[in-house]
């Protein structure tokens, strides 16, 4: 289980970033005090437009960056105080994380397996299962650089799961994937959830949130506007579908500002 309390992340902007973002503010509140809980056996989705703070939130969860304020607990372990312990329990997947193209899938999974402290036997067992599941078997000794994009993505997932994490954090899982690979990835997320894992994803695609997630939090400008099951969101907003509900909240928050 993952629990997030009052999470805030403020970036100090460089001059270049200020110019790029066309802003005079020196600080950017990328995440502005959010709370949520994600439970085992569920897929929790952060749904929001670009720049809402989804990636920043997930990076905080993955202990890649430190929040400015707030707390994160994984099964009651404080993530901010026990980074290394937490990293053994979680995995973080994003488009930006890549594997060295020079090495083979076999070498790569062995390498990361040992970095997670697994024994050779443990790695071997896990590797067989994962490579079979993602159909990487026959490419084990091919350099990653020579694999197709879809195959690389599958390998990334396989490698990140080598230590059998309890909590899977996935930033924009279907981004940049062809429909076939995208489907196999989402199918796998459901598989993981059914195994009792806690899955947290971010997305800006309505249909992904609607079909995949058990719980959805709509995040706009670093704040969670609503959080709950699809039904709960539709009921509270009085809308027919998620897209209408989202735009209702979006217009509200933008209108309130101006």
């Amino acid at each position: 289980m993952l629990k997030v309390n009052n999470l805030k992340k403020v970036f100090k902007l460089s001059k270049k970033q200020m110019a790029l973002g066309k802003t005079k503010d020196k600080y950017k509140n990328a995440v502005n005090g959010i709370d949520f809980t994600a439970n085992p056996g569920q897929i929790f989705g952060l749904l929001g437009p670009n720049g809402a703070g989804k990636t920043t939130t997930l990076r905080c969860l993955a202990t890649l960056i430190k929040p400015t304020e707030g707390e994160i607990f994984f099964d009651n372990i404080n993530a901010l105080k026990n980074e290394e312990q937490v990293r053994k329990k979680i995995c973080f997947l994003t488009n930006e994380l890549k594997l060295d193209e020079f090495f083979t899938p076999n070498y790569t999974i062995n390498y990361f397996g040992s970095l997670y402290g697994l024994t050779k036997e443990q790695i071997q067992k896990k590797k067989e299962i994962l490579f079979k599941r993602f159909e990487i078997d026959s490419y084990q000794e091919t350099k990653i650089g020579e694999l197709s994009t879809g195959m690389k993505q599958k390998l990334s997932i396989a490698v990140s799961l080598v230590h059998d994490p309890e909590i899977i954090i996935f930033d924009e899982p279907t981004n940049g994937l062809d429909i076939v690979t995208a489907r196999s990835v989402t199918d796998y997320l459901v598989e993981l959830k059914n195994k009792g894992k806690t899955v947290i994803i971010s997305t800006h695609i309505m249909s992904v949130a609607q079909h995949l997630c058990d719980e959805i939090a709509i995040i706009i400008d670093g704040k969670i506007k609503i959080n709950g099951s699809l039904n709960h969101i539709l009921q509270s907003t009085g809308k027919e579908n998620l897209e209408d509900a989202f735009f209702e909240l979006y217009v509200q928050s933008k209108g309130g500002k101006e």
């Binding site: 890649l64 290394e84 990293r87 994380l97 594997l99 970095l115």
Partner: peptide
């Protein structure tokens, strides 16, 4: 190069100090 290609981040999320 590893930062640019994103392979450094992959290493940073492992429990390695």
């Amino acid at each position: 190069g590893e930062k640019e290609r994103g392979t450094m981040a992959t290493l940073l999320i492992t429990p390695v100090k």
